[in-house]
C-alpha cells in the first residue's frame, strides 16, 4: 500500500540534491562540447569569446589523429572479438554449474576490473620483460582482451542466471537436443546480452589508457595521442575537437547496450 505520508513524496531538498547530482555528472561533458567551438585558441577562457567550426575542419586534416583512430578501432575490434568468445564460454560454463572451485573461478574472472588498471598494466609489462616480448599491436590487444572479457562475461552471466532453467528443460522435454535448445531457446534469449557486452567492451577498449600505456611501446592509440597532447598544449583547439569525437564514438555503443539490456519494467 502506498500512502501519502510526507516521507513518501520527495522533499524539495531531496529532489534538488538528486537533480544537482545529475547536473554535476553532466556539466563537465557539456563544457567539453562547448569548448570545441570556442574561437579562443590559447587559454581556457570562460565564457568563450566566440564560436566557430574551424577546428573541426583542421582536425579532419590531421593524419596523426586518423592513424591513432584507426589503431584504436583495430585494437578495440580484435579485443572485443576475443572477449566475446572467451567471456561467453566462461559465462556458459559458470552460470549454473555446480563444479568444485566455482567461487574461486568467479572471483578470478572479475579480478581485472576489481584491481586497479595500473596493476594489470604493470603486470603485463613485467611479464613481457621477463619473457622478452616487444610491445606491439598484439600486446595492446592482449591487454584489452583481458578486461573486455570480464565485461562480456558479466553481461552474459547475468542474463543466463535470469534464464529460467525450466525453459531449457521444456525444450529438451519436447525433443530438442542441446544444440537445438541452444540455437532456438538460449541464443535468442542471450543474443542481446552478447551484443550489449560486445558494445561495452568495444567502448571500454576504444577509450582505455591506463593499461595501454604499459603495453603499447611507441604505438599511439587515440587515448595515448590525447594524453600526450595534454602535456603539449600547442593544439588545444584540436584536442577539444578530438574529445568531442571520442565522446561521440563511445556514446553510440553505450546507448545501444543500455537499450538492449534495460529491465523489462522500463519498456513501454
Amino acid at each position: 500500500m502506498r500512502s501519502s505520508r510526507d516521507w513518501e513524496a520527495p522533499s524539495a531538498g531531496a529532489r534538488f540534491a538528486a537533480w544537482a547530482g545529475i547536473a554535476f555528472l553532466h556539466v563537465p561533458v557539456a563544457i567539453i562540447v562547448l569548448y570545441a567551438f570556442t574561437t579562443e585558441d590559447r587559454s581556457y577562457d570562460f565564457p568563450p569569446p566566440g564560436l566557430t567550426l574551424r577546428w573541426f575542419a583542421l582536425a579532419f586534416e590531421r593524419s596523426d589523429i586518423w592513424a591513432a583512430m584507426r589503431l584504436s578501432i583495430g585494437v578495440a575490434s580484435l579485443a572485443t572479438a576475443a572477449a566475446l568468445v572467451l567471456g561467453t564460454l566462461a559465462a556458459f560454463a559458470l552460470a549454473r554449474s555446480r563444479i568444485r572451485g566455482k567461487n574461486a573461478l568467479t572471483l578470478l574472472f572479475v579480478l581485472p576490473i576489481a584491481l586497479p588498471g595500473i596493476i594489470t598494466g604493470i603486470a603485463l609489462l613485467a611479464a613481457m620483460k621477463l619473457v622478452g616480448v616487444e610491445p606491439s599491436f598484439w600486446t595492446i590487444v592482449a591487454g584489452h582482451a583481458t578486461f573486455c572479457m570480464v565485461i562480456v562475461y558479466n553481461n552474459v552471466v547475468a542474463r543466463l542466471r535470469r534464464l529460467p532453467q525450466s525453459w531449457i528443460e521444456a525444450s529438451m522435454d519436447l525433443g530438442a537436443d542441446s544444440w537445438q535448445t541452444f540455437r532456438r531457446i538460449v541464443l535468442p534469449q542471450v543474443a542481446t546480452a552478447l551484443l550489449a557486452g560486445g558494445m561495452l567492451a568495444f567502448a571500454l577498449s576504444f577509450d582505455e589508457i591506463i593499461v595501454t600505456i604499459f603495453t603499447s611501446g611507441h604505438q599511439q592509440t587515440l587515448p595515448i595521442w590525447f594524453f600526450n597532447e595534454l602535456f603539449r598544449p600547442r593544439d588545444r583547439p584540436i584536442t577539444n575537437v578530438v574529445a568531442v569525437l571520442v565522446i561521440a564514438v563511445t556514446l553510440v555503443p553505450i546507448l545501444l547496450a543500455y537499450y538492449l539490456t534495460r529491465p523489462a519494467t522500463e519498456r513501454d
Partner: peptide
C-alpha cells in the same frame, strides 16, 4: 536424455517460450 524419451511435461511455471 529427455529428448529421447516419449514423455512430456507440463511445468509448474508453464515454461512457455516468450519469444
Amino acid at each position: 536424455p529427455p529428448y529421447e524419451r516419449n514423455v512430456n511435461t507440463v511445468f509448474q511455471d508453464y515454461a512457455l517460450f516468450p519469444h
